[in-house]
């Protein structure tokens, strides 16, 4: 199960990869990036391209965060 979050998050990068992000009043550390992809979104409505990362945290939870070049958002959290 997963839930859509769509909240802005603060991300710290390490060698062009997210290393940790701040959400829910604490840092989530990336154990590993399990997947990454790009999505164009609704280009016809003026949306810009987004880069998605699926992150496995040190605690073993899965998160998806994305950046559209301007900022970062937590997209989805997996139970």
């Amino acid at each position: 199960m997963s839930k859509l979050v769509l909240e802005p998050v603060l991300v710290v990068m390490d060698r062009q990869k997210p290393a940790r992000f701040f959400w829910g009043k604490h840092w989530v550390y990336a154990e590993k990036i399990t997947d990454r992809w790009r999505a164009t979104g609704q280009w016809w409505a003026g949306e810009t391209e987004k880069m998605f990362f699926r992150i496995q945290s040190r605690e073993g939870r899965l998160y998806e965060i994305y950046t559209d070049g301007k900022g970062w958002r937590l997209y989805r959290v997996y139970d």
Partner: peptide, 14 residues
Amino acid sequence: KISQVSPERRLNAE
């Protein structure tokens, strides 16, 4: 339609 989802449509512009 542009607002509809289709598996044939590409996710990105790569």
